[in-house]
Structure formats: structure tokens, C-alpha cells
Design a protein around this nucleic acid. Sequence first.
DNA 1: GTGGCTGCAAAATGTTTGCACGGAT
DNA 2: ATCCGTGCAAACATTTTGCAGCCAC
Lengths: 126, 126
Amino acid sequence: MIKRNTIQRQLVLDTVRAMHCHPDAEQVYSEIVKDHPHISKATVYRNLNLLSEQGMIQKINVSEGADRFDLRTGEHYHMRCRCCGRLWDAPEGAANVSLTGNTDGFSVENVLIELVGLCPDCKNKK
Amino acid sequence: MIKRNTIQRQLVLDTVRAMHCHPDAEQVYSEIVKDHPHISKATVYRNLNLLSEQGMIQKINVSEGADRFDLRTGEHYHMRCRCCGRLWDAPEGAANVSLTGNTDGFSVENVLIELVGLCPDCKNKK
DNA sequence: GTGGCTGCAAAATGTTTGCACGGAT
DNA sequence: ATCCGTGCAAACATTTTGCAGCCAC
């Protein structure tokens, strides 16, 4: 199916690229609505899903709350603060994963990693 | 708060222990309802959450669909088939993760890993 | 002009919560 | 007698979908 370039699709992509906080769909919508009050939340969801299927952005499932979106698409891992809920890209080399191939005939195609802990801000609040 | 031993709580625990398929809440409920038609789904949810907080079972977030529950509570990883959706415990040593400590001041407390791929059954169907 | 895309509302999915009652301690 | 746990329904959070009109191609 041929995909069209719509203003809404470009807005969703630009907004995710501009926000460096791993926003969820609601946050992307809120940001766009400021300048484009007519956009529908369904359109934001549809385009976030489409763009992540096309590899333009990455959809990130986290163990608490709504899915987040990220402009980086290469394989990398995420750190989630269990206190404030914010999400970060883990620095290059923060975690190294090696697969031994001993997976009972299961073919691993993708490794998803979430590092859960406390961010510096939340540590200082204690 | 002191926790009471109720028939429903024991049923939820026993059922998760008896099912070796990483069921979600709906599946646990369906299994219990066969013999105990009066149990409420809310009770199943409440007890699954309580038991996982107590460390009796483990709650597993997966990147697609509802949360699953597991009788194993020690740290281990999971493999999810992207075709049939089933979940398995990854064999001991299937994946080795090393943290380098290079996490920009973020304190990692827990590492969650999901290996996504194809199970032997789904590979054979192709 | 065609058919994908949008906005809107409604539905679907997964989970939690308020409340009155019943049962364990 | 207390008060925790239950069943029920309703609320909630997140996401998807049906549909009529619109707009990019």
C-alpha cells in the first residue's frame, strides 16, 4: 500500500524528533495540539504506529504505563526510573548482552532490555 | 497490614503454580472459574498483584498484550514467540548480561529482558 | 477521480476501584 | 466485634476501529 505524505504524519514525526524525553502518545498529542488544535488523537496513534513500522521511530514498551516513542531506531536499551517514571537511552556499552544460542530451538530475533532503577534526581530527593 | 488466607487467594496461587504456560490474568480466571463459578475477575487481579508483591509469583510485562504470571521468582529472562504469542522461561545461561556501571548516575536495581523471536512450532509452520 | 487519510465517536482491551456485605480472626 | 477480602459494577487508562468526508497523488 502506498503511503501519502500528510501534514499530520510529518507533524508526528517532527514532534517525536524534537522531544527528547521519550514521550508517550498522549504527550506527543498534547505537544502537537498546541499549534494544531484540530488534530485527532487517533491520527497521532495511527501515525506513531505507522512510523514505527516503517522504522522511522521506535516504539518502546515499558513495564509500567503507556508505550513510549523514541527517535533512535538502532538497537539500544532503556533505563526507567521507578520513582519519576522518566525513560532514558542507556549509554552506549552500559549493558552488554551475549546470547549463548542455548535457547531450546527458539530463534531470537530481537533483545529488549529495560534497566529499572533510580535516576540521579530521585536519589537526591531521598 | 495482615493478610488473610482465603480460599480465593490459595486458588489463584495454586492455579498459577499448576499452569506452566505463563498465563495472563484472564487465563488464570478462566481456569479457576471452571470449578468455582462465583469467583470474581477483580479478585483474581487483586490476588495476582498481591502475590507478586509478596514474591510468591512473578508478574511479567511483555511487549505485546496483557501481563503474564510465572511461578518462578528468581531473576530469569523470557522468550516470547512473535507468531503465537507464547512465553517461555529462557534456559539458564541463554543470555548473559553484564552491566558496566556506565549509566550516567542512574542506579540500576533490576534488569528486565525479553527475547523476541520464533518458537520451534512456528518455524515449522512456515 | 481514486483511494488512502483524517476527525470524530464509539468500541475494545486490560486493569483498578468504590461499596456493601460476609467471613476470618 | 473488628476489619480484611470478596463480588459486583462502574470507572479508568490506553489503544483501536467504523465511518463519512477530505485531500494528496
